[in-house]
Design a protein around this nucleic acid. Sequence first.
DNA 1: GTGTGACTAGAAGTCCGTG
DNA 2: GCACGGACTTCTAGTCACA
Lengths: 74, 74
Amino acid sequence: MHQDALQQFGLRIKQLRQAQGISQEELGARAQLDRTYISGIERGKRNVSFKNIVLIADALQISVAELFNVPEFS
Amino acid sequence: MHQDALQQFGLRIKQLRQAQGISQEELGARAQLDRTYISGIERGKRNVSFKNIVLIADALQISVAELFNVPEFS
DNA sequence: GTGTGACTAGAAGTCCGTG
DNA sequence: GCACGGACTTCTAGTCACA
């Protein structure tokens, strides 16, 4: 976790999403967030709020702890 | 992670801060955030952004993964 | 040393569209 | 299915005076 944590976060979301074989649109629908916003997050352009982090984790059906339980955030 | 994740988050910050024996003011100084803002976070009144989550984790000298590595977020 | 309400600027987030 | 932009509304960031 150094500079550009947001891009790391976006990549993590993207990987998890693709691992489930769903589109940004589908993830957005599940999390009740706009598809273009999901796109921005995955590209590291959005400074996501905690509530939305929780929404996205839920949509990906994992816990917040699991979401960050990777070397990039350790 | 059920209702009021923000309050869980605030409590977590508070516990970590107190475990280090530092004041909100000191934590704020380390994270370069206002002490009243830290206060609001600990009380679950602020929907913190990811960038600030990272700043606070750094100020507490732990990783983001560790920050969420508790039952409340699992 | 902390809780709280209020405030403004600027970022978050939505909704329309394009290639 | 995704990146990206413009215009728009809603919310957070950041700070203050006061208790």
